[in-house]
Design a protein around this nucleic acid. Sequence first.
DNA 1: TCAATGCATGAGCACATACGCATACATAAC
DNA 2: GTTATGTATGCGTATGTGCTCATGCATTGA
Lengths: 129, 129
Amino acid sequence: MPPREEGTCEARVVHGAKLAALAPLLPNAEGVQAAAERFRVLGDATRLRMLLALSLSELCVCDLTELLGITQTAASQHLKILRAYGLVRYRKEGRMAFYRLADSSLLGMLSGLRQRAGGREVANGGQSG
Amino acid sequence: MPPREEGTCEARVVHGAKLAALAPLLPNAEGVQAAAERFRVLGDATRLRMLLALSLSELCVCDLTELLGITQTAASQHLKILRAYGLVRYRKEGRMAFYRLADSSLLGMLSGLRQRAGGREVANGGQSG
DNA sequence: TCAATGCATGAGCACATACGCATACATAAC
DNA sequence: GTTATGTATGCGTATGTGCTCATGCATTGA
């Protein structure tokens, strides 16, 4: 009969051994934080649509602005975030900046998402033209 | 020489065809929104640590509270979100609620994350004790 | 019945964030 | 040089979010 720990939850006694075994199996805080931040970057619909578009083709900011129906400011700010997390790269050509995916590991996820989330009615198949 | 579209970005003319081809390949807004929301749920370090812990063992709220060093309220609120998105399930046993992963498709991602993000110094291997 | 315990929920607050506006910067055209 | 265009960046604001505190609910045990 172990003495109750100072806390209130009696389960600490019941599950104490399990917790002690689990704790060292969890990644350290920084690793989880980094992974969570990466997920959070993907957790915005506008950014996700940007990445989906860039998974299909290199595009300039103007293209993204029009394709996604957002303002140029919004596009530029989201691209800044995607750059900061190393998800996109860009090259400048004159006044224009052409962005493309930097992380090829995203390609699989994005193409899977395109298929699961549904590329509009493209599955239509054989049109007469 | 096509007439300039009403907008200001000349690239619309240059890349117009490309954009027209790309648009139908992108998932509809709802699909992307749903995917983004799912990413956003994973985009919180506390929730991600919860899922990592639950990927190793079924745990009650009290266990999670202690294991992650958070308050019971915080744990409960995060679990509510994870429930709402169908990521965890739970069973009640007396006063306690035992949570476990509901989405087995997360298991692969989480175990991969545990290894990449580093399960503390478990890789230590043979300790003398 | 009453108190204790485990969990859930609502209110309030501090902070983050996504957006629009204005503007700055860089390049191109004149 | 000036002007126009494509992009980037401060700033303010509205909204979202994660936390704490207080409280409610359900179950257990006396």
